[in-house]
């Protein structure tokens, strides 16, 4: 059975609900309506009483999930948009993320955050927040880029004993398809070499993986072999895989869709620079969205985030350094 990225998320939740009676889904419009993106389509019918509509109260939604996790359940919280999770931010970073450290009682919650820009969505339905959540101790931050990972990593998230920020990219929901859902998954926290190359390493994750793969194909035609690393999980960050790739290529370009100040790409550059300075043949580079809110108009939106065009330009520049 072929599946889209969105269907993989729906199927993973169906399987989690079927296999573990402790799992339930809580969020706005997730019940009979099936969610704003239909990621919980029919699940309320298939699993009565376990897919529950919440009031528009992200703070209380997360708080309730924490209480349920303390009492032994495994909540999946759907934030309607990643942007709205900020209303529940205090509960996520101060309550859920500190609980195990403070009390030794685990807090297994999966927070699903539909993230990333789509054309016309504007400043409050387009944010990529992996960087913000990765900054806080006590959270695992997943950023699946493929249908297979959307499925396998969501299942893994539900079984982890820790709160997981699961960043699912809205741009991938409908367009990305796989022939079938995977039966095995790479371990959580392990990056994947998405394309092998010897001249330059692009480290990226989520939707930017696909832009990077386009660039790799394009540059191959020019005689430059780009290696593409898909981080899969930005926290923990698989430094070993990144370092090994940079050791092969000598050049690093880190690409992310979130804002440029600090963050995942800065972390990658910092680690490679401090731990592998001698591996580098050129200054490590990074590419992010522009430091403004995400714009509404398609012309502006396309220019706000990194694209195959801007990544290719940065890559060509880096190869010439």
């Amino acid at each position: 059975m072929s599946a889209t990225y969105l269907e993989a998320i729906r199927e993973a939740q169906a399987r989690a609900l079927a296999e573990d009676p402790r799992v339930f889904i809580y969020g706005q419009d997730v019940g009979a309506f099936g969610g704003a993106f239909k990621a919980t389509k029919n699940l309320a019918k298939e699993f009565p009483g376990r897919v529950i509509d919440a009031p528009i109260s992200e703070d209380a939604i997360v708080g309730l999930a924490v209480g349920a996790a303390i009492d032994g359940l495994r909540p999946i919280v759907e934030m309607q948009f990643a942007d709205f999770s900020i209303v529940g931010f205090n509960q996520i970073v101060n309550q859920a993320a500190t609980l195990f450290w403070r009390t030794h009682v685990p807090c297994p919650i999966t927070f699903r955050l539909p993230c990333g820009g789509t054309s016309g969505s504007g400043p409050f339905h387009s944010q990529s927040l992996e960087t913000v959540y990765a900054h806080y101790p006590g959270l695992v931050v997943m950023t699946p880029a493929t249908v297979e990972d959307a499925y396998g990593m969501l299942l893994a998230a539900v079984t982890l004993e820790d709160p997981v920020i699961f960043c699912e990219h809205k741009l991938l929901y409908y367009h990305l398809k796989a022939d079938k859902l995977p039966t095995e998954a790479l371990p959580v926290g392990k990056a994947r070499i998405a394309r092998v190359g010897r001249d330059l390493t692009i480290v990226t994750y989520s939707a930017m993986l696909h832009e990077a793969l386009v660039v790799a194909e394009e540059l191959a035609g020019e005689g430059t072999e780009v290696e593409v690393v898909d981080l899969r999980t930005v926290k923990p960050l698989d430094t070993d895989t990144v370092m090994a790739s940079v050791a092969r290529t000598g050049r690093l370009l880190a690409v992310g869709e979130s804002w440029p100040w600090g963050g995942v790409t800065a972390e990658i550059v910092a680690r490679v620079t401090s731990e592998g300075f001698n591996l580098l043949d050129a200054p490590p580079q990074r590419l992010n969205a522009k430091d403004t809110p995400v714009p509404f108009h398609p012309n502006l939106w396309k220019a706000h985030r990194p694209t195959a065009g801007t990544i290719a330009a940065a890559a060509r520049n880096l190869v010439r350094m």
């Binding site: 339930f24 009483g49 376990r50 109260s57 703070d59 209380a60 939604i61 997360v62 708080g63 309730l64 999930a65 924490v66 209480g67 349920a68 996790a69 303390i70 009492d71 032994g72 359940l73 205090n90 509960q91 101060n94 309550q95 500190t98 403070r102 009390t103």
Partner: peptide, 23 residues
């Protein structure tokens, strides 16, 4: 155990009660 943002504890109590009912 409270966090300093005390109002945030109310919904955590809700969550335990919610879980009890679900179980």
């Amino acid at each position: 155990p409270m966090i300093s943002h005390l109002g945030a504890m109310i919904s955590v109590v809700n969550g335990v009660l919610f879980a009890r009912r679900m179980k």
